[in-house]
Design a protein around this nucleic acid. Structure first.
Lengths: 219, 219
DNA sequence: GCATATTTGTCCGTATGTATA
DNA sequence: CTATACATACGGACAAATATG
């Protein structure tokens, strides 16, 4: 009698499932995560579920209000500004490390650019969005630092919450497709200084765009 | 009948207590944190303790080995290199933001420098170490980003684990006292470019020193 | 403002699986 | 290889807080 099939701990597994559902928008921001109903659906006890909640809360994907329960996080303008501040720090660190990075690391970059182009051709703008996130994860990855990777990964997972609230994924991601490609080209040609400057502009523009749409939606 | 006196959740309280004990060296790296013995001493159940463990594990202060329990983390050379990579990214981001930072933020900087000087006078080199960490936390704080603050805080808490393994706190911290002061002075005079360069050198030297001592201790 | 129902917070007992002596 | 110790996870219980009427 084994309810679990995989190894690695039940709480982590449950957290991963919930992370996925949140990223997909199945559990939209603001949703309340009831211990009872979710636990029944996932076949785990309340105790295990609570451990999973701690994991998610620490990743900022949910907020834990005392004696009220956990809710999928809703991002405000302040959060977006904050996230972009740290993105700038981490991604530019990766770009600055590019000259000393082993050539293999550029593979992830090329791959993400290719995935973005392919998704755009088939009109799957949601997938363009994930390819964009992969590209920027790869930018940070140039630093070759597991911790930097992890922090950036969390940050981008949070940012996805903002993407979910955007009305038109196409308007959101299309303008940045070729800019990713341009940054990748600059990096491969060894012009990491210009790549960094271009990245800074990219991030500024993207931040402004998200904030604009957010403000409009509030009105 | 309330066992707890404070508000905020038992798990978080327990995690905070353990964090403190780890930072103080009461629970040295490698120590095994038994669910049973600790729970009895803290007056909380295993369930609550397990939730606290998840929190600490996520902060990398303890490692959670499946079916074996949790242990206070022992840092290897790779961890130190990694931590300094991310420190560089986050702290230089703070320094680069200094010109646009409101003047109040420099107060934490001055305060940390003063605390370091005072602790050095009284020969309390452990306190010099914490003042050093406060100073660098304040450097990152110049960016005005809650998330950057949090990531840097975690990072420095981890680094403290390495400090605990160092034989002579004085040799470790004394050489850097005046360098913190110099960086602060450069920042206040508006020369953030030179401050950034100085900070980069600082971090390189500190990293090398810790690694040297670590290698020697292994032999 | 009050009483009730729901939900969370915490603890305990227990069965099962895994690692180690 | 067996036995012991321990972590993992479940389910039930009760208190406390919150939400609802």
């Amino acid at each position: 009698m084994e309810t679990v099939g995989t190894a690695g701990g039940a709480a982590q597994r449950v957290a991963e499932v919930l992370r996925e559902r949140i990223a997909r928008g199945i559990l939209p921001p603001g949703t309340r995560l009831s211990e009872e109903s979710l636990g029944a659906g996932l076949g785990v006890s309340r105790n295990t579920l609570r451990e999973a909640f701690r994991l998610l809360a620490d990743g900022r994907l949910v907020v834990h209000e005392l004696n009220r329960g956990v809710f999928v996080r809703v991002l405000g303008p302040g959060d977006v500004i904050d996230i972009y501040t740290v993105r700038r720090a981490l991604e530019t660190a990766g770009v600055r490390a590019a000259p000393d990075a082993p050539p293999e690391r550029f593979g992830a970059l090329r791959q993400a650019v290719a995935a973005g182009a392919k998704a755009a051709q088939s009109g799957d703008w949601s997938m363009v969005g994930t390819a964009d996130l992969h590209f920027h994860q790869a930018l940070g990855g140039l630093a070759g630092s597991p911790r930097l990777d992890e922090y950036l990964s969390r940050l981008l997972a949070e940012l996805r919450l903002a993407f979910l609230a955007m009305p038109s994924p196409r308007d959101l991601h299309e303008p940045f497709l070729h800019r990713n490609q341009a940054i990748a080209a600059l990096l491969e040609s060894g012009a990491s200084d210009r790549a960094e400057a271009e990245l800074e502009r990219y991030l500024s523009d993207a931040q402004r765009m998200i904030l604009d749409i957010m403000m409009k939606a509030d009105a």
